[in-house]
Design a binder for these strands. Structure first.
Lengths: 147, 147
DNA sequence: ATACTTGCAAATGATTTGCCAGTGT
DNA sequence: ACACTGGCAAATCATTTGCAAGTAT
């Protein structure tokens, strides 16, 4: 099952630091792991497991396993926009939260700080601590509202 | 594909009114359709397609087809909480929006009016018109925050 | 040396689709 | 009658799991 992190997201700025973190935690650093991590650093955008597997010529199942491992270590997270596969990205580097236009598919990112008042509203209303990081906020973008 | 409604949600208070609406629109009122609709009226809570199929002894595929038909007619909508199957409910009757605790699974419903300020914030921030009706807002409930 | 990782194949879970027999209007 | 609907089986899509063979430490 796709998991929330087991540990707090550590700080890391590049592949070497990420690798160091994993090593400190006693994880094995296989070639595939390094490649997957590297692919995430190189991609400017959230990527699908399938995209990574194809790009690297690795088995899809292994990519999913690696992504889940990284996710448990707090190095990676993934977001669900409407249907379709989850999108994976480095956490820490890309902690933005997403708005997804259900009509045209447009994606808009917001910084966590910008959404804080929204979270605050929800907190007041319900006591729930909303985490928009996992499911994008679905709605309609300005363009599609005009249409 | 699971669709947004093709038409505005009509008003209907009971099975007969719902049936009347469908009939006006030239849809056939098969026994199964009536049964599925009735099951939704009887259920106090959002239900899965599977639950309906099992309860009624209908084929799962047909139930999905019927639910989608109703959804296109604006009579039904479905929401996704974390993983797992979508939950279907009558629209109009149950237009609330949901908060889902990703840790314990607790569900909390809010009236659309209550969430209006939240939508307003998001509108100001991004121009997006958020529709929490399709994906629940995921977060942690008060109990799980304590834990 | 040995426990952890891989690729491959097969299993899952949710939902959809093809097809032909059955039924509402 | 005829177009639309239902059941059944099989297909899809995203993701997970079992297993034997390979590899990092």
């Amino acid at each position: 099952m796709t998991q929330s992190p087991d540990v707090k997201a550590p700080d890391f700025a590049d592949l070497d630091e990420a690798v160091a973190i994993l090593r400190e935690r006693g994880m094995r650093l296989s070639t595939s792991r390094r490649l997957v991590l590297d692919a995430l650093f190189r991609a400017g955008t959230p990527v699908t497991a399938e995209g990574v597997a194809t790009e690297l010529g690795l088995d899809l199942a292994s990519v999913y396993r690696n992504l889940e491992t990284f996710e448990r270590q707090g190095l990676v997270r993934h977001v669900h926009f409407g249907h379709g596969p989850g999108l994976y990205m480095l956490s820490g580097h890309d902690d933005r939260e997403y708005l997804f236009c259900e009509q045209c598919g447009a994606v808009r990112a917001l910084e966590p700080a910008q959404l804080e008042p929204v979270r605050e509203q929800i907190r007041k209303l319900s006591g729930y601590e909303a985490r928009f990081a996992h499911f994008a906020i679905v709605g309609r973008c300005p363009d599609c509202q005009r249409a």
